[in-house]
């Protein structure tokens, strides 16, 4: 049951992401990307990380994508007027790099003979928060300082200058 659900969700993620990156209209791309992120959140839930799934929904699909949508609508980029569809010469390095990644992945998949044994127990929320606030306490401080700097930088960039 869960395997079937995972494969359906993986298909949804890949198709929604392909539609998002080929879409010329930025608002449509954002909506496809929100679909992909919702499916990814359910995948996180299936992988026994309910907290990360919730944060994915709230922060990614909720805050970050709405911020994108807000900026697109505020700057009136919805028409996609001057955004030309890139030519084949633009696509060539991207396709070469993607081919390299997928070829190395294929080598990895085919060459692996002995599977790594999976762990027996799953980390729950209690273990997650214990690890977060004891082992990585310094990282929490650094991340919060980084968020503070981001707020200061965004306020500096966004302020209205007197002409």
């Amino acid at each position: 049951m869960e395997q079937i659900l995972f494969y359906i969700l993986a298909t949804v993620i890949v198709i929604a992401t392909i539609l998002a990156i080929t879409e010329k209209h930025p608002v449509h791309a954002i909506v496809y990307l929100v679909t992909s992120f919702f499916a990814l959140a359910v995948v996180f839930y299936l992988l026994a990380a309910p907290l990360i799934a919730m944060f994915e929904m709230i922060i990614y699909a909720g805050a970050v994508m709405v911020l994108f949508m807000f900026v697109i609508m505020m700057l009136d980029l919805g028409g996609g007027g001057d955004a030309k569809r890139p030519s084949l010469a633009h696509c060539l390095p991207a396709l070469v790099l993607a081919g390299v990644i997928l070829a190395s992945l294929g080598l990895l998949v085919t060459a692996r003979s002995s599977a790594i044994p999976a762990a027996s127990h799953m980390p729950d929320v209690r273990e997650f928060s214990t690890t977060l606030f004891t082992k990585y306490g310094v990282a929490i401080e650094i991340i919060s300082m980084q968020l503070l700097f981001a707020v200061v930088g965004a306020l500096y960039l966004g302020r209205r200058r007197k002409p």
Binding site: I59, Y60, L67, F68, V71, A119, T131, Y136, I143, Q146
Partner: peptide, 30 residues
């Protein structure tokens, strides 16, 4: 994190999320 049964991977996913929100807010302000 799910495969090895350790919570560290989820912690780093949370860090990536915080980093992304900082990055996106600065980039969109720019």
């Amino acid at each position: 994190s799910n495969h090895w049964g350790m919570a560290d991977g989820q912690v780093f996913a949370l860090m990536i999320m915080a980093m992304t929100s900082a990055e996106v807010s600065l980039a969109l302000a720019m």
